[in-house]
Nucleic acid binder design. Structure first.
Lengths: 110, 110
DNA sequence: TTTATTAATCGTAATATTGCAATATAATAA
DNA sequence: TTATTATATTGCAATATTACGATTAATAAA
């Protein structure tokens, strides 16, 4: 029914899937890569950089902000965005643990 | 319109988001964790392990299989699933590169 | 104050995802 | 052959996501 049954999973599983979900759209991947690439905050030019309409970008930024992965500072009429370093590092720990599970165990199958 | 404009993004960005999207549901995270935890392939008991209905689990398994992250071997009437090690490693490389982007650059903002 | 400029929000259409009952398929057992 | 068992597929209802035009809000410039 389009609704995920979160209550039957652990907090960790839900956390991992929430982080993954926000990376599950190329526009958000692109925004984050841009924020990493540029040697400062990004004010305004994300709409030009990526080819989507301004309300669409704004919506994607909101999702990234809601998860705490970016933060925005108001500078005059524009807003400067950058990676939230502490939260990114924390997210990375959780995701890395999931990605780096031990592959060497089950040798005797498949 | 619910449809992602993949053509305006790079292959890499689309690849990252496709992997992330499949991790974007706790049931699939749970399935993968179980496959890693158990010291062999898993035949059948995933439906009991996770609390969702059999068609639902089957659907999630299909998505993981479509992306190549797991493989299934038919054993009699049941099917044994396990992590596709080579593909998992390849995915890990792509995702790690994205997660491990350099945070030290932009010190002078936000 | 009036007029840009920039970004957020609202409303809505189109499409995607989730979950499951019902059914189908495939292999084995009796 | 006829159950039985295990998994996949189909069809559908409920909900979520994506995208964007129109509008609003907030600040800056004239």
């Amino acid at each position: 029914m389009g609704v995920t049954k979160t209550e039957m999973f652990t907090d960790e599983q839900n956390k991992i899937s929430l982080f993954a979900k926000v990376f599950g759209h190329p526009a958000r991947v692109s925004i984050l890569q841009h924020l990493f690439k540029i040697n400062s905050c990004v004010c305004g030019d994300l709409v030009n950089e990526i080819g989507l309409a301004q309300p669409t970008i704004s919506q994607h930024l909101k999702e990234l902000k809601n998860l705490g992965l970016i933060k925005g500072n108001i500078e005059g009429t524009s807003v400067c965005y950058c990676i939230h370093k502490e939260n990114w590092t924390e997210m990375k720990t959780i995701m890395s643990e999931f990605l780096n599970q031990d592959l060497s165990k089950n040798q005797n199958c498949c």
